[in-house]
Design a protein around this nucleic acid. Structure first.
Lengths: 210, 210, 210, 210
DNA sequence: CGATAAACGAGACGGTACGTCGCGTCTTCTG
DNA sequence: CAGAAGACGCGACGTACCGTCTCGTTTATCG
């Protein structure tokens, strides 16, 4: 997630020549994400993206071979591996999990939902890149869950032999399902239900233990 | 899921005229699903569908107003509400769940995976229809899980106050995530891991109890 | 010049299907000529032509494979073989030639000049079609000259063994040169100079004989 | 035609700095002519020219403001005002004219034809420069003809009041027409036909007089 | 049984976005 | 600092797909 490779062959071999303006990369990716979130993949056009970034289509296509590659790359940069010190630390696993999932802000949440919609269409448009694209939104949550679970295990709150990798997927997968398929919002009751009904029992904690 | 309404107003009022050939419906829907599974929603074209069904685009558009409606309808016919008597009955919840999810045949499984990919792209292409489309593939599994869980509850294997609606989502949601995002196949170990690590603890059964 | 073949393979083999609207052909060719005369070949765009004809680019490209083919075809239809009865008949060759070349009307003349400019660029853009395109504007004049010269010969005004084919080229070629290279207008003095200084001597008539 | 001004302000005022390499001018002009003759004006690209000259586009544009100026300049250097002492002197006008037009060598002729094609497209691409460009190829011939005719007049071979300016245009104009519009080669029969059928009668000489 | 009316295969049509390419300008690095 | 290399904004090209339409033909049902 960090160290995303630069778009399209660095072509840094050629010594001479004007180097690509890295600022264009950023501007284009940002514009792409904006438009994607606003109108979805189908109705997003390359001209729109270029215009919003104050760039030209040629510049777009010099960096990405197609619309789907652009979007894939853009989406791939959304998430970033979480660091443990950035994660909530409430003292109990239950508190941590709830704090992690609680929607940060109204608008951030909406943007995320919009992006999820935008990304979904990519999955079949560019199957070979779908994993990268799809997981970009969800994987950071998985990683966060994994970190929280590992911390709980290390502090002895849960068993040593709990299958952390599997359990870390529960909340992200079910949340994605809720957002994408059921088109229902992520709210507190939903989070509590997930944590108390599924996750905590899976790690051997009764809901009321937490 | 059953009783899908006939596509676009039956217009059976008109007295004279050649009646619509119902066989065309089936042929077109089948062709649509085939193409969808092969190339995904984006690259599937109406001409392709028509050609494969030996029909014309006019015939397509006489029945469905748009590509997304056609696909939605086609996908909506895949799944069908399960009946309890068709579900496996092994005597234990664990046995039932495993039997339910075990891939029936190699090819059927592959086709399902292909369709999931095809359907995924619908989610943003036609947001208003996404729920119907998306759930067509997953919802039958959810319903099946619900039935199995209810039976287990009725026979006293699990608690009365277990949150069946939530737990019935676990396996389908995580399986969809695995198929669509992770692009990994559904195999026995995956199913066992899900059932034993997540579902059974959630209903208050230790994995080895089953 | 008459009986110009329909653009791009008639594809009349396929029995079914909606037939091409011949009205579109006309509209598109007319629009093409208009735009060509207004802005020249380089600045004429296919979108312009389509828009002016109320057509779409697809319709354009269904009929002609490229911009140069469209223009070539359009230009090729300008001229039409002259009929002897339409030509001036003043009784003397000199009178006929002068009457033939005298600019008919101001606007017709201007349009012709504009078209000449538009056509010139075709000559290298589509070399294989250049002959058709280029001659479309000049060849009718050549043919007219040939007819007039033949009539003069038949009535005994000029010699039997005059090289009509060569002499018929003189005025058109020099006029084209004047228009395209020298960018000077065709006026009466120019015509008289040509006829009296070059053509009449070539057919064995002194200028004052006529 | 001689004394073509150096392209784009010499800017020799600038005190320091590396002086412009004059060799680049020649290399670029030659490259431009080559490419022009090969593919015509439309398909000739500035990158092609730069690459063939081993130069960069910046160098091109430092010297000429646009593609049409480059080509105009390049073409303008082809022809050069003829000097009387370089022209053939056979003793008779007919001999002179035939000697002048006789194709020097096969390849030179072909190159000329190719260039004519290349130049033709300039005529509308850059109307304001068309006269210069167009006449660069033809005007030297016109001037040569004029010189030969004047010499014949001065030596009493033809009349004093012959319209030399008009007659000098005949052969060049008709030759250009043959090359550009008819796409037929310049060969001996063509030249003889022109001289004997048109030019000599126009100056008052019967063909067999010469 | 003939007339009528709609379905049907085929494919043209208007529109819109795609991805490519050329022009003329610019920015960097090298000699 | 000239020059090679090549990125950049702009805008046209030619292609492909959508959803509509118009042909000629086929096939039920009604009078």
């Amino acid at each position: 997630m960090t160290d995303v490779e630069p778009p399209t062959s660095d072509r840094s071999g050629g010594r001479g020549g004007r180097p690509r303006d890295p600022g264009r990369d950023t501007a284009l990716l940002t514009a792409a994400l904006d438009v994607l979130a606003e109108v979805g993949y189908e109705r997003m056009t390359m001209d729109q993206v270029a215009a919003r970034a104050g760039a030209s289509k040629a510049t777009l296509y010099r960096r990405w071979r197609s619309k789907s590659e652009l979007v894939t790359d853009a989406v791939g940069r959304i998430g970033d591996s979480p660091r443990l010190e950035d994660l909530p630390d409430t003292g109990t696993l239950r508190g941590d999990l709830v704090a992690l999932m609680r929607p940060q802000s109204e608008e951030e949440s909406e943007r995320l939902v919009a992006l999820m919609g935008g990304v979904a269409s990519l999955l079949s448009a560019a199957p070979e890149l779908a994993e990268v694209a799809g997981s970009a939104l969800v994987e950071p949550f998985v990683a966060s869950q994994r970190l929280l679970l590992a911390r709980a295990r290390d502090r002895g709150e849960i068993d040593q032999d709990v299958d952390i990798d599997t359990i870390a997927l529960v909340t992200p997968a079910m949340t994605a399902y809720r957002l994408v398929v059921q088109r229902r919002p992520i709210d507190i009751p939903h989070i509590l239900r997930l944590v108390d009904t599924v996750v905590l029992p899976a790690v051997g904690l009764a809901a009321h233990d937490a």
